[in-house]
Write a protein that binds this DNA or RNA. Structure first.
Length: 570
DNA sequence: GCCGTTTTCGGCCCGACTGTTTTCAGTCG
């Protein structure tokens, strides 16, 4: 059982208990424990093996520590099986319909025997739902509309796609005279790899007019709700957008509130309560007196904390770190001195060697590594030994010509099924940096896949494992890999791992990045660019690194070229 | 079910919007 699996099952149990009508705070305890497990930089399995006390983790007491241990050891939990016996599993999918929470789901089941989306559709079409007390005609219509299109709204939206939608919408809102400040907050501002919706904060003097302007936006498919300080819409793309309007003097408090995460906000507000203060989206209050909170810094200061970067606000220890003055000084885009993973027209890239080099110069980089695919990857026009050596000569010529930038000879070498590499050692030896990755046989067992990567790292010429898990966001899970074993293996061998900044990859993911930091493995943030424009994706990789608490020194390619060459020595 | 500078019981962040209610419950973020 991986941490994510344990968290998923705890959340499922929470859902079931909630529908049963269990104490709301008990339900919250399960969810909070799930979040705690999900955000850990170490695996529960590993902690148990070392006989560490799970009850020491935040939000986990004696009871949940035992349940989590049972889950980790057996893959099941009696309390969960029993709850599933009592409450049909089909009720869980009903919760995915907005408008439907635990209370209404219970009513639907108790009164009409509804236990699936299909049964709900049928009952709603027959008008049976609106006949229930506390359900009306409007609610029935909304539920039916949701039930008809539930499958379309399944996925969260990738960060880069959310960004594109946000840019256009922000520009549209800025055209309106009444808008003073506008900020995209929520998980977008925290740099999460996907967002559930866009949360946009505006300050203005006439909120009603601003709300009207917002819902009149071309891209709006339907208006979910509209009040005078908040409105929710769906865009034609299916993306939900929440707009929140406050006065200028509430900007700091509102930005903090609207950035979240919810768990982070709860923790900060609890701290405020302990000091006799109350924090809401309008400000910080002592009784009826409002203490100024025009900026986030002022909000944090009121509870005795320094400003915490949005990427850290997941209630994963950032508040404790802030209290102890141990917040990381997060890596920034300006710290990046080069990009160690990119392709050219020699394999499957769109730009030539020279075009990539000149683009990197414009970005102010000191070095880049040219990492076209190796011979085995024929679909990507991988280079054989002859073509690779020819490219090395071209690189020598370009290096002699260009100033301020150094091209490193490299290759993205395929890791074959048995962990051997796609080029012989005498070729690997000629490279300035050797990066390796898995492009085939994704279906191997966890043990064999892990062994495969470890074996590849045994080769003394290997420097960097690219997109280590192979996952594609909203696409595929990635291959089974014991990431802790790979990190330990990398550390003892002096190999580095990558944060691949392709928007569909972002691989390693944030939790793995944090694990790498704990283990002491340097990561490289690379774009894997297949065109000049994609070099700009570096920012997404930096966000991911920041979410993993990385500082400048934790990142390989913040080094100068001389330092880099040194760090590559194994 | 968790937790403790109101500490082993009695709290648990705080507010907006909607619909169905006629003062508020349910849902959401």
């Amino acid at each position: 059982m991986q941490n994510a699996d344990i968290a998923r099952l705890l959340n499922r149990l929470a859902d079931l208990l909630e529908i049963e009508g269990a104490n709301a705070f008990r339900v919250r305890a399960y969810r909070s424990a799930a979040q705690s497990v999900e955000g850990l930089a170490r695996s529960i399995t590993d902690m148990l093996a070392k006989e560490e006390d799970l009850a020491a983790l935040p939000g986990i007491g004696k009871d949940l520590a035992e349940k989590i241990a049972t889950l980790a050891n057996t893959g099941t939990l009696p309390a969960l099986s029993e709850a599933e016996q009592r409450t049909p599993r089909g009720l869980l999918e009903l919760l995915r319909i907005s408008q439907l929470g635990p209370k209404r789901v219970k009513t639907l089941h108790d009164q009409l025997g509804i236990d699936s989306i299909e049964a709900l559709r049928k009952a709603a079409r027959e008008g049976k739902v609106s006949a229930l007390s506390s359900f009306g005609k409007k609610t029935e219509e909304k539920i039916l509309a949701e039930a008809e299109r539930i499958d379309e709204r399944e996925q969260r939206t990738r960060l880069d796609e959310a960004g594109q939608a946000a840019d256009v919408l922000v520009a549209y809102m800025q055209q309106f005279d009444g808008v003073n400040r506008i900020t995209v907050a929520g998980s977008y501002r925290r740099g999460r790899e996907t967002v559930g919706d866009l949360d946009i904060l505006v300050t203005c003097n006439n909120d009603q007019a601003v709300m009207d302007h917002f819902v009149a936006y071309d891209g709006v498919a339907d208006v979910v709700s509209q009040g005078h300080t908040r409105a929710t819409v769906h865009l034609h793309s299916g993306l939900q957008v929440d707009l929140r309007a406050v006065a200028d003097e509430s900007y700091g408090a509102a930005l903090h509130y609207f950035t979240g995460s919810q768990a982070h906000n709860v923790s900060v507000r609890k701290m405020a309560a302990a000091k006799g203060l109350k924090i809401n989206e309008y400000g910080v209050f002592k009784g009826d007196e409002q203490i100024t909170a025009r900026s986030e810094e002022e909000v944090f200061a009121q509870v005795g904390l320094p400003w915490i970067a949005p990427e850290l606000r997941e209630n994963r220890g950032e508040i404790e770190a802030a209290q102890q003055g141990k917040l990381p000084r997060l890596v920034t885009r300006d710290d990046i001195r080069g990009d160690l993973h990119m392709h050219t027209t020699a394999s499957d890239g769109k730009a030539s060697l020279r075009e990539m080099a000149e683009a990197a110069q414009r970005l102010g980089y000191e070095y880049i590594a040219i990492t076209d695919h190796s011979q085995r990857l024929t679909v990507a026009n991988g280079l054989d030994i002859k073509r690779l050596r020819q490219q090395m000569e071209e690189i020598d010529a370009l290096n002699a010509e260009l100033t301020g930038i150094t091209l490193l000879k490299s290759s993205e070498v395929d890791i074959l099924e048995d962990g051997s590499l796609d080029f012989p050692d005498e070729v690997l030896r000629e490279l300035d940096i050797c990066i390796c990755s898995v492009h085939s046989k994704f279906e191997l067992s966890r043990a064999r896949q892990t062994e495969r990567v470890l074996r590849a790292m045994d080769n003394p010429y290997v420097n960097l494992i690219a997109h280590p898990t192979g996952r594609i966001i909203n696409g595929r899970e990635g291959y089974q890999l014991d990431i802790e074993a790979v990190l330990q293996g990398a550390r003892t061998r002096g190999v580095h791992l990558e944060i691949n900044a392709q928007p569909k990859r972002l691989d390693l993911r944030d939790i793995h990045v944090r694990m790498a930091k704990e283990v002491g493995v340097l990561l490289s943030i690379d774009t894997d660019a297949h065109s000049v424009a994609q070099l700009d994706n570096i920012g997404l990789g930096v966000s991911q690194a920041r979410r993993g608490w990385l500082e400048k020194n934790d990142v390989l390619n913040t080094r100068t070229l001389a330092q880099l060459r040194k760090a590559l020595k194994r």
